[in-house]
Simulated assay, not measured.
Amino acid sequence: MDWRPISADSHITEPPNCYVDNIDPAFRERAPRIVNKEGLGDTFVVEGMRSPVPMGLVAAAGIPPKDLRMGGAKFEDLHRSGWDPKGRLADQDKDGVAAEIIYPTVGMMICNHPDFDYKKACFDAYNRWLQQYCSLDPDRLVGMGQTAMRSVQEGVADLERIKAMGFKGVMMPGNPAEKDYDDPAYDPFWEAAVALDLPLSWHILTSSGDNQLSKPRGPKINGFLAIIRGCQDIMGMLVFSGVFERHPKLKVVCVEADAGWAPHFAYRMDHAYKRHRYWMKGKELARLPSEYFRDNISLTFQDDWTAFQFADRLGPNQLMWANDFPHSDSTWPWSQDVIKEQTGHLDPVLRKRILRDNVKELYKLAA
């Protein structure tokens, strides 16, 4: 094989100085920082958020399942490549990947912060740090900037700044400060994303009420199944509210929410539209919901056998494989084994599209 996969969803591990050194001075005393807590080990403490972020699972790639623990980790024992770009390139080679789309870790949780001014300051600080991290090799370390979405006008300014910083896309918070994303007030923002050629991403665990791990029904492991639902809700909202009808060139990414569910989800949207849109006051659309879902939404996944099985039921450009390094759900350093096991039945052209071409084309990568 003369090409290597590109991961459409990987992460950094924010170092202790990420926010403290780069945040607006007015917020420096309140900036997120690492604190060692008894029983939890090193954690990122974020003022205004009830629970700290234990570092154990956020950098547990490669650890056997029986040894996974939420707490007890020391930052210096984590994968150095989470914050050291030189080490990151070596870990990419170890996993056999050509490049990675880089998302935050602590920044995912900050998406749910109730104080939007604080959130804005944190995201601006993170963007400054990430720009430095990716500068070592922008073709292989492809950063996604963050926006707090305090307002539509500021969101547009954030897009322009993120583009100028060299980032290839934007990670969105699940909940904006003003009206929800289905409101036509966001039309200038969608148009700015199109004009700047910036795909917009919604990642799991970035919507309020997203994380059911803390209070699941039944055993805690049942909550793991719920964490994809926030992304599904956002994708459905964008389709049914006509965002893609008004902005047909807008590209969005549903990140780390798996993809094997997508054929049924698209079918279910069409069923709801055909059968129930009149009494449920659904918007009249020029095309079926599944067509917008197919043409405007990309889906990333890591270990999802069903996504590969149903790949021919989706748009050829929709699926984008990822390794989720260095998180606990990562396929690193066994990605090549997982790929070999799950893609053997695929047509070589479609296989290459899912593992490389789709993400390369979406973000216009050189790797």
Rank of each mutant, 00 (worst) to 15 (best):
A226C: 08
R69Q: 05
N323I: 12
Y292A: 05
A193W: 00
G41K: 09
L205I: 10
D137M: 05
A322M: 01
K249W: 13
A60S: 12
L314K: 12
L225P: 06
A98L: 15
Q212D: 14
K120C: 11
D124G: 14
I102D: 02
L250N: 09
M149H: 02
D91F: 13
V106M: 04
H276K: 12
G174A: 01
I339L: 10
F27I: 02
F189H: 08
E291G: 15
S330A: 03
M108W: 02
Q318F: 11
F308C: 07
P54V: 07
A121T: 08
C18H: 06
P263G: 03
W190G: 03
V35A: 08
H264N: 12
M235R: 12
A8M: 04
K220L: 08
N127E: 02
M109L: 07
V35I: 09
D210M: 02
D9A: 05
P52I: 14
R229W: 15
R128W: 02
G87K: 01
F123W: 03
G260I: 07
L238V: 10
E341C: 08
D93F: 10
R294M: 15
F301P: 13
F123P: 05
I6H: 02
K215H: 08
G41F: 12
A195P: 09
W3D: 01
F44G: 05
L365H: 00
I34Y: 05
A31V: 00
V170D: 03
A322Y: 00
K86W: 08
G107C: 00
C134P: 00
I23R: 02
P5K: 09
I63T: 13
T206M: 10
T343L: 04
S51F: 15
L238E: 04
A121M: 05
N211C: 13
F27G: 05
F44S: 01
I234H: 15
P184R: 09
W202Q: 13
S208E: 06
Y126L: 04
S207D: 15
K360E: 14
N323T: 12
N127T: 05
L130Q: 03
F265W: 02
L141Q: 12
F293A: 14
P85Q: 10
V253R: 02
A226G: 04
Y126R: 05
R161V: 14
D258K: 15
Y278G: 14
R294G: 15
L362H: 04
P316M: 08
K119D: 07
K179W: 10
V243L: 01
N323S: 13
V338R: 08
K220C: 12
L238D: 01
L136D: 10
D137C: 06
R80D: 14
L68Q: 12
G223Y: 10
N323G: 07
W3Y: 10
S81Y: 11
D180I: 03
C254I: 03
V253E: 00
P248S: 00
V359C: 06
G315N: 11
M49D: 10
E100R: 03
Y278I: 13
F325G: 01
M269T: 14
F116P: 02
K37Q: 11
K119W: 05
M280H: 08
D2A: 15
A322K: 02
P85T: 06
Y126T: 04
L285E: 14
I34D: 00
R246I: 01
S330D: 07
R80V: 07
G145P: 10
F224H: 10
V255F: 02
Q309P: 10
A286C: 03
P85D: 11
M320F: 03
M1G: 12
E245V: 06
